[in-house]
Simulated assay, not measured.
Amino acid sequence: MPSNPSIDTGAVPLVELWRGDILESLHRGHAVVMRPTGEIVESWGQADAVIYPRSSCKMVQALPLLESGAGRDLLPEHLALACASHQGAEIHVARVAKWLADIGLGESDLRCGCQDPQDIAQRDHLIKTDRQPCQLHNNCSGKHAGFLTLNRHLGDDPEYTLPDHPVQQAVRQTFEEVTGMTSPGFGIDGCSAPNFATSLSALAFAMAQFAAASETGDGRSRAMTALREAMIQHPDLVAGETRACTDLMRAMGGRAAIKTGAEAVFVAILPQQGLGIALKIVDGGVRAAEAAITALLIRHGVLSPEHPIVQKYLGPLYSRRGLHAGHVCTAPGFS
C-alpha cells in the first residue's frame, strides 16, 4: 500500500482515564459523523485519515452475498452472523455449523483459521471435554460462511480468501462503490481475508448509506436494509454477552446498528437520523473506542445517558473490592 501520513497526524484527544486526581491515560483519535449526501455533520481530528476498517465493515463485505442472489434464502440470523465478530459461544458455533451443512459444506471448508472462543462457557466446555477449538469458534466464521455461500454461486474455487479470487474481487468492487473511494491497498486481516483500506470519512459515508437505505429502494438499498435490520434484530449474534456491540444495541432498542473493528475502530448506523458514524482511536485502545462510540450515540439521541449500560463504558471505575478508583470520560472538545 502507498505510504500515508502517520495515523497520529491531526489526531485529537477523545477519551481520558482518570485515577484519583491524576490523568492516567489520554487516547487520541479521529471521528466523523456524516449524511448520505456526503455532508460531514461534525468531525474531530482528520476526517481523511486512512485506516483499515477491520471488522467494522463486515456489513459492506456481506453486500455481494445478497446482491448476487446467492443469499436469497438466508434468514436474518444468517445475515447477522455474516456481519458478526462473535464470541464463539454455542449460539454462534451451532448456527454457523448448520449454515455450512445446509449448503453441503463443513468446518474444513472455512479458511478463517482456528481461534480460542472468547465465550467463557464455551471455552470451559472445550477444556472439560478435552476438545480443541476449531474454525467455527473463529469470531469471523459467520462472515466466512457468507463468503462460502457467495463462492458456491460464483464458481466454487475453494481458496476464497485470496485477494484475486472472485469473492474478494466482488467485495473490493462493492467496498469501493459504497465508500465512494478507490482503496489505496489492503492488509491481511486476522481471519486471512484481505481488508481494504479507506479513509474514515469514506467509511462514515458507507454507514450513512446503510442508514438511509429502505426496503422500497433499489437492490442495493434493500440489501443494506436487510443487513442493518438483521444486526438490530440479533445483537446477541453480532457479538455476544459482555461485548459492547451487543450491550449497546440492546440498550438502544432498535435505534441503531453498531459494529466494532480490531485496533479500536467503531462504526454506527443511525436510520432515524440518516447518519453514519466512524471513529478510530490511534493507539488501538478498545476501551477508549467503546467509550467514544457510547458518547457519540448519546450525543445523537439514540442512547439515553441514563441507561445503566452507559456506565460500563463511560463512567466510574472501581477496584475489584468495589472501591471507587477513577473514571473514564470524554476529553474536552469531544462530545
Rank of each mutant, 00 (worst) to 15 (best):
P5C: 05
T9M: 14
P13R: 12
L14H: 04
E16R: 07
L17V: 15
I22M: 14
E24T: 03
E24Y: 10
L26Q: 04
H27R: 15
E39I: 04
I40T: 13
W44Q: 05
W44T: 02
I51D: 08
P53L: 08
S55H: 07
S56H: 10
K58H: 08
M59N: 08
V60K: 15
V60P: 08
Q61F: 12
P64Q: 14
L65K: 04
L66F: 02
L66Y: 07
S68K: 13
G69Q: 05
G69W: 01
L74F: 09
A80W: 11
L81I: 00
L81G: 04
G88D: 09
G88K: 11
A89I: 07
I91D: 00
A94P: 01
V96D: 00
A97N: 02
D102E: 13
Q115V: 15
I120E: 15
Q122H: 07
H125Y: 15
I127V: 12
K128L: 13
D130E: 09
L136I: 10
N139M: 10
G142C: 01
T149N: 05
T149E: 04
R152L: 13
R152K: 11
D157H: 15
Y160A: 06
L162T: 14
L162F: 15
P166C: 11
F175E: 03
E176V: 11
E177M: 07
V178L: 15
G180V: 08
T182H: 09
S183N: 06
G185I: 00
G187M: 01
I188A: 12
F196D: 01
T198Q: 02
T198A: 10
S199V: 01
L200K: 01
F205H: 06
M207D: 04
A208G: 03
A208D: 06
A211F: 10
M224K: 06
R228Q: 06
E229V: 03
I232N: 04
H234M: 06
P235V: 11
A239F: 08
E241S: 02
T242R: 09
R243I: 00
C245L: 01
T246M: 10
L248T: 04
R250A: 05
M252G: 07
M252N: 04
R255E: 11
I258C: 12
K259H: 12
A264W: 03
V265A: 09
A268N: 11
Q273E: 14
L275I: 12
A278R: 03
A278C: 01
L279P: 09
K280G: 02
G284K: 02
G285S: 12
L314R: 09
S319F: 03
R321P: 06
G326P: 08
G326W: 03
V328Q: 03
V328S: 00
T330I: 03
T330V: 02
F334N: 05
